[in-house]
């Protein structure tokens, strides 16, 4: 055993888990463990108590939800990645999964755990923000809905309160939106150096709505509004592409680390914006 000592509780139901969360303010939920256990083994985190939700039945679903999709807390990365429903209704997420982690990690890790972990270079928060997903948080005190844009607050920091469990992720229907995802990493499957997830609506050759969301270049996934504004109001032509790319680069304030420096990240954001906008425009119905 490499982690520091902890208590282990196994929840049989969501209610069980909520009860345990309320009673143990220093507890953490254990989902796939692909982020949490690694950090515990390095003793970077030392939760006093783990609440294992893996034995709760019927929370790994991926279901129709109106014209959107509802994803349960325990849906594994690989289930989401290979879901035909998601490919049809939220293909942006399917495309993003081409770049997320490795087979074994995806077999165990969950989308819900991934979002709660809120790694600043994770791909999925960008997709959630780009598609306008809603996260359902539940506690003994009740249930609330938080829009993805309001959920990610900082590095490993979310709007989830200590006694809340993320129980469901709701993805809206795609309607006529075009979409594209692109990232750069040093090695395929690694956390990203820079990510852009883009959705566009084009009507009569005119860009009506756009979301350009970056990850890996700030504390959390965030929309690059100047880039969106540069796109809206006309056709997606070279001038708009250039303007959006420049605006995207100007809208981020990236950090430097051993994987990439700030200047490169900024340039990468411009390149990825250009690439995703071009592809998303081509995919508009």
């Amino acid at each position: 055993m490499k982690p520091a000592r902890f208590r282990y509780l196994r929840a049989a139901s969501v209610n069980d888990a909520l009860q345990a969360l309320a009673e143990n303010p220093d507890a953490q939920i254990l989902a796939g463990g692909q982020s949490l256990i690694a950090m515990m083994n390095l003793r970077l985190v030392k939760p006093a108590c783990l609440i294992d939700i893996n034995r709760i039945s019927n929370i790994g679903y991926i279901d129709e939800d109106g014209d959107g999709v509802a994803i349960g807390a325990l849906a594994r990365h690989n289930d989401v990645k290979h879901s035909p429903l998601i490919r049809e209704r939220c293909p942006l997420l399917t495309e993003a999964y081409e770049s997320i982690a490795h087979h074994t990690v995806r077999n165990r890790g969950t989308l819900g755990g991934n979002l709660c972990h809120a790694d600043p270079s994770s791909e999925t928060p960008a997709v959630m923000v780009a598609t306008g997903a809603t996260l359902m948080l539940q506690s003994l005190r009740g249930q609330r809905e938080v829009g993805a844009e309001d959920f990610f607050l900082g590095t490993y920091e979310t709007a989830r309160r200590q006694d809340e469990m993320l129980t469901e992720i709701r993805l809206p229907g795609r309607r006529t939106d075009g979409w594209a995802f692109a990232e750069i990493s040093n090695r395929h499957g690694d956390f990203a150096i820079a990510v852009i997830a883009t959705t566009l609506r084009i009507e009569d050759g005119r860009c009506e709505a756009a979301r350009v969301v970056a990850s890996g270049v700030g504390e959390h996934a965030a929309r690059l509004e100047p880039a969106e504004e540069a796109l809206i109001g006309g056709p997606i032509d070279d001038a708009r592409l250039d303007a959006a790319a420049a605006a995207a680069a100007g809208a981020v304030d990236p950090h430097s680390d051993s994987h990439a420096d700030a200047a490169y990240r900024r340039d990468a954001i411009a390149a990825l914006t250009r690439r995703t906008v071009r592809r998303a425009a081509a995919r508009c119905d």
Partner: peptide, 11 residues
């Protein structure tokens, strides 16, 4: 030769 180093060399 990571992407950032190649980018830097070109710049």
């Amino acid at each position: 030769m990571t992407p950032k180093k190649i980018w830097r060399a070109i710049e």
